[in-house]
Design a protein around this nucleic acid. Structure first.
Lengths: 242, 242
DNA sequence: CGTCGATGCGAACACTGTACGCACTGCGGA
DNA sequence: TCCGCAGTGCGTACAGTGTTCGCATCGACG
């Protein structure tokens, strides 16, 4: 009874060697979960696989994390910690806000699962890192003299979230195809052309953009993002007093 | 061998009575899937339950739909068909675009799963209804004289998608709590206050908005949405020639 | 009447998240 | 020195999941 069948002779040599491994803790679990999410997307994260990566049984994780959803919440807030927001004095408010938005976008594209899980759960997390980002953005807009900083924040963040989530989803599809972005777009072209056939305005836009799209897709996405960002910053500027 | 053990005596009376039911077809499947998604959200949709609702076995659905993901794609495009886009001549371009955005938002809030599945799969669907919406929006911006209609479309749609996805996720959480929106917010207040404590700008904003938030949450959401929309329309207006 | 393509479906496979209870550890107190 | 205890890991099990496969049955057509 004292010795299991699989380990009949409990000798000194057989005891305690795992502690070389970094021990199971909430932080290591979250870190490894983020690594898995980055590598294979949100539907590839399973508690069993995550446990295996940590040399642990699947159900051991539940000692440190209440549920898989909670684990994902933790991962989301962890990732929000990667978004730097400059101090109000760093530059003019437009540059400061623009830089923050670029960082947000970069983070969303680096962790392409972010947008989709935010879409599922909303921004109701109230995790410390998200709160910090919000606070520092509020500081930016307040210093610039905006009467309703939180309105401005909501506007800007909604745009960035919507745009970069769409981008991330697209890039995920591309990655899954095993092709480069340009190859994928080239392969998509015929069916896209067919889809817009008969729709005059879209057909025009398609004809114009097609060449650039395969030539330098990433640059095109950057331009698209920046166009919308400038539109919003212009619109906000009109709301500054005087 | 001709008669199964479960149905030993094939009599006339036991034969063919289901055809009273509307027959299994792609359209009825998609329609019923949307109903289930609306009722219980995306993670409550399973092929077995959907089959049961249609008085069919789970695997029968695969005769009409290649995969669950494809079924969801079909559901998404179906729902895009609910978004009316006015003709360019209906009113001035600002009103036309604003109406379209309101419709988009309303549809996203009516089908609260929409945002989250778009976040997962992107807008690469190219379904006919999405194409139609895009075409008609392009017509709107072109008629107004915008030099780059598709850029304007992307900007506006990204904002609406981001904002209403966040809204929908929040409303889903509320619905799951069984409370009204105001009750839920009231219950959330203490932990929100704790989360923003020590963050001066957020604490200010919180103190200002707290009362309105419980008094009329829906109106507050409307205002928030319209603020951002007006910002973007202002920004776009600056890009009109002359 | 016989054949054929389309349709429905039961069983099975490989997974999933998670509840439960047992085994083992190191530590504080008697 | 020993005991008990709190914390941690994990094997097992359950109720589901999406999807494949092969068989049964149907209406239509030659």
């Amino acid at each position: 009874m004292a010795a299991k069948a699989t380990n009949p002779i409990p000798s000194v040599w057989a005891r305690r060697r795992e502690p070389e491994q970094p021990v199971l803790s909430r932080d290591t679990i979250v870190r490894e979960a983020i690594a898995m999410l980055d590598a294979d997307g949100v539907e590839a994260l399973s508690m069993r696989k995550l446990g295996a990566r940590l040399n642990a049984g699947a159900t051991s994780l539940y000692r440190h994390v209440a549920t898989k959803d909670e684990l994902i919440e933790l991962a989301v807030d962890e990732v929000f910690g990667e978004i730097p927001v400059p101090d109000p004095g760093a530059a003019d408010w437009r540059s400061n806000v623009a830089m923050t938005c670029e960082s947000f976008r970069a983070t969303t594209l680096r962790h392409r699962w972010l947008g989709s899980v935010i879409g599922q759960a909303g921004l109701v997390y109230l995790g410390p890192n998200l709160v910090t980002v919000s606070e520092r953005m509020a500081a930016l807009f307040s210093a610039a003299g905006f009467p309703e900083p939180s309105r401005a924040i909501d506007t800007v963040l909604s745009y960035v979230l919507g745009m970069s989530t769409t981008e991330a989803a697209f890039l995920t599809t591309v990655a899954r195809s095993g092709e480069t972005e340009a190859e994928f777009i080239a392969r998509l072209m015929p069916s896209a052309a067919e889809a817009v056939a008969g729709h005059d305005f879209l057909a025009d836009a398609f004809a114009e953009a097609a060449a650039d799209a395969v030539a330098n897709p990433a640059a095109l996405r950057d331009q698209k993002f920046n166009y919308g960002l400038e539109v919003i910053l212009d619109g906000l500027a009109l709301r500054l007093p005087r």
